[in-house]
């Protein structure tokens, strides 16, 4: 449906914007390495079903490989910056101080409690949706502490937030057309979108209406 395809395109766009940001600035200014590492973990645990070869569609499989591949590629690019621009890299690391154990631990516990089946694949899948819902926090934390962000970085976060927000009408659509109701995706999706809501508001006020981007 239209919401699902727009969501996936917005997700693709966010990654293109992120890669463009790193490529253009040749440094990692404003990008949280911790959030990016969490995304690698999110995609690797969610798409374990690639190993079972029970694929749903070519689209699905290609997208899964794309998201795993690009998330690892982002880490590689960031590590290159460490060599090329060690001062900027150190500066980023000094500001990237969110304790991710507070995200990893609860996600693991929630996955144990809320899952569709107590199997490795299902537990990893559930862990990945819980973790994805909070994975942006180190990035938002970094932004709110520095108070300022580059335009490309804000576009990246916006596109990334929009992706999960668009999944919500997609779930409503699928509920009415397919009688499908996936409670875990829906709940974590709502949580994820809620975490972005403050950011969306500031983005709307500052970026759309002109002017710089500053977080309180």
């Amino acid at each position: 449906n239209i919401f699902r395809i727009s969501a996936d395109l917005s997700h693709l766009a966010s990654i293109v914007i992120l890669l463009e940001t790193i490529r253009k600035t040749r440094q990692v200014d404003g990008i949280s390495l911790k959030t990016q590492l969490l995304y690698v973990l999110v995609f690797c645990t969610r798409y374990l079903d690639l190993l079972t070869f029970r694929w749903t569609s070519l689209y699905n499989t290609l997208m899964k490989f794309f998201f795993i591949g690009t998330s690892i590629y982002v880490i590689k690019l960031m590590q290159e910056c460490k060599i090329k621009n060690p001062v900027a890299y150190k500066d980023m690391m000094a500001r990237d101080t969110f304790q991710i154990k507070y995200l990893l631990g609860p996600s693991a516990i929630l996955a144990m409690v809320f899952n569709y089946k107590f199997t490795i694949l299902e537990l990893c899948w559930s862990f990945s949706v819980w973790l994805e819902s909070v994975a942006i926090l180190p990035q938002l934390f970094m932004l709110s502490r520095s108070g300022k962000a580059g335009t490309l970085t804000t576009h990246y976060i916006f596109a990334l937030g929009l992706y999960r927000a668009l999944y919500i009408p997609n779930w409503i659509w699928r509920y009415y057309t397919e009688n499908r109701f996936e409670k875990l995706s829906i709940f974590t999706g709502l949580l994820q979108t809620a975490l972005y809501s403050d950011f969306f508001y500031i983005y709307y006020k500052k970026v759309i209406k002109g002017g710089g981007f500053e977080l309180p």
Binding site: T56, N60, K64, Y116, N179, R180, E182
Partner: peptide
């Protein structure tokens, strides 16, 4: 019947 156990989303 509500179906949930197919992870066909990204």
């Amino acid at each position: 019947e509500v179906n949930a156990l197919t992870h066909d989303e990204l």
